[in-house]
């Protein structure tokens, strides 16, 4: 266990292992996401109240779910950065922050498009929507702070502190609909209870969530590899990668 942990500290080792996982992540992710989206948008039954307009849930919920989940992963990596000073943890945070920002934006945008026909407004400053907007700004802050500091070590620490401070927002997002009166409805999916929708609706939704997780894994590995190559461009092993292989 500890040996694995120490190996994780080696960017070179990670670069090789990522290559092995990436094709699987990409293919499985694409298959699951596409299957879930086609099923949800074309074949799942209509909602008794909202008709077809509820179908945006098949994009809205997975992107909102992943946006928060990515932040939690970033916070765990930030803790590793601060305590163990592991370079790879910082590579992860820098690589996935833009992905999280895009997904947060997608969740806000689809929510807005959904809100107009159902609630009657594009936007309202209720606790759920506002805390989600704060998450978007946190992502922007992480990206900006990371690129504002050129020294790798101080950049890693500053970003890690910001990410960890921002993690208090995650339970606020999650429980906002229970702690306060909001326009946003409570969660359809709870860990301890059955979802408040029939299986022909939640199964495709679950497929999209799983598919997006795998696609996120692929994209995270891909972006981490790029970041590693950039940081280690002066090392022997990266230079060796660039040499044409098998040439005479």
């Amino acid at each position: 266990m500890w040996q694995f942990f120490h190996k994780l500290g080696s960017p070179r080792w990670f670069y090789g292992i990522a290559n092995r996982f990436m094709p699987w992540l990409l293919v499985m992710g694409l298959v699951l996401t596409l299957a879930g989206i086609v099923w949800g948008l074309a074949f799942a039954p209509q909602d008794y109240l909202q008709g077809n307009s509820y179908r945006i849930i098949f994009i809205h919920v997975p992107s909102a779910f992943l946006a928060q989940s990515i932040y939690v992963m970033m916070a765990s990596a930030a803790l590793v950065t601060l305590v163990w000073h592991m370079k790879l943890a910082d590579v992860f945070v820098k690589a996935v922050a833009p992905v999280g920002a895009v997904l947060t934006f997608l969740a806000l945008f689809t929510g807005s498009v959904w809100g107009k026909p159902t609630w009657g407004t594009w936007w309202i400053w209720d606790a759920r929507l506002t805390s989600m907007l704060i998450l978007l700004f946190l992502y922007f802050g992480v990206i900006a702070l990371g690129s504002a500091i050129s020294d790798a070590k101080s950049s890693a620490r500053a970003v890690a502190v910001l990410v960890l401070v921002g993690v208090v927002n995650i339970p606020i997002i999650k429980y906002s609909v229970e702690w306060w009166n909001t326009l946003h409805q409570p969660a359809t999916f709870k860990l301890t209870e059955k979802p408040t929708m029939p299986a022909e609706m939640w199964v495709p939704l679950l497929l999209v969530v799983l598919g997006l997780y795998l696609l996120f894994g692929w994209l995270a590995f891909y972006r981490m590899q790029t970041e590693i190559l950039d940081r280690e461009r002066r090392t022997q092993w990266v230079k060796a990668l660039n040499k044409p292989q098998g040439a005479a």
Partner: peptide, 18 residues
């Protein structure tokens, strides 16, 4: 001066609702 609809977290096909 403004009324917004709030819906709950229940989703079901029309047949089930009927």
């Amino acid at each position: 001066d403004q009324v917004l609809a709030k819906h709950d977290e229940q989703y079901m096909p029309p047949e089930v609702a009927e």
